[in-house]
Amino acid sequence: MGRDPRLILILVALSLTACGGPQSALDPAGPSAASLHRLGIIMYVGATLVTLLVTALMLVPFLRPRERSVNRNLFLWGGGVALPLLTLTALVPYVMTVGHETRAATTPQQVSIDVIGYVYWWDVAYRRPDGSRGGAAANELHVPVGEPVELFLHAADVIHSFWVPSLAGKTDMIPGRVNRMVLQADRPGVYRGQCAEYCGLQHALMAFDVIAVPRPEFDAWLARASQPTGQPETPELRQGRDLFVSLGCGACHAVRGLSEARLGPDLTQVGSRRTLGAGTVPGGVGNIAGWIASAQHLKPGNAMPSYDQLEGPQLRALAAYLESLK
């Protein structure tokens, strides 16, 4: 037992230093996550001290039996009442002032995004200043660096929870309700997020990326996302587009200029996506082909059927066409 406090200390130290990871609350990259992390550190230190105190007090009688009877008042009033009362009277008001960033007000110039949780993927739509649906994406949020971004969180079916640990705490997406949160990335980068409320069979495979880029780059991206896709240039790509139409892909997926459906992820820029199937596999033509042919094998229970009746060249053409959408 005597070794344990030290073990705890080492582990606490480890937890503070081993910050890495694209999805770590210990590696904050935004003001909200940073203030929560600061609060965390204060509490880790406090908790470690209290644990050490309690462990030491509890072991003393075994190391050195006493002759006199104990000072009850010191234990009951000092340890039982004063210790929690004083530490918490200090901590609670501090806690009350932390974390208001995620509910802060924003100005009209700032970016507003509707994020809608589906089983098991994320629909992302940028609001135009008039509130209508602008550029769209899926399973990827592009945000400008250093600016607060306003998110409106919806759920289409069951409860999901939107969480990017490096940027902010999580907020649930609840059917029938719209939750608002404000998010800011202080440095450019890719921050991984994941659904944090159990939402059914493939809850584990429901991730997304927040891609923070400088404002000009963001504006360019948003402009592209709002424009119709170009005409395919090679015969193979044309065949792929025709297959997209004839197979009925457009009944679920939007490709700007080709189809408008929103039952599945918007594919307007699917060729540039970092992942497919909400973080199930990386992007790229190989994975696109694999996903089309065996979506139910890679992520059983998701809404997309496996298109396993395609001939080889057809599969390649469709995958190549989708990969060309950037």
Partner: peptide, 10 residues
């Protein structure tokens, strides 16, 4: 194993 070429997807 890196996955970006999609070998393991098929």
């Amino acid at each position: 194993a890196g996955g970006s070429y999609g070998c393991a997807a098929c």
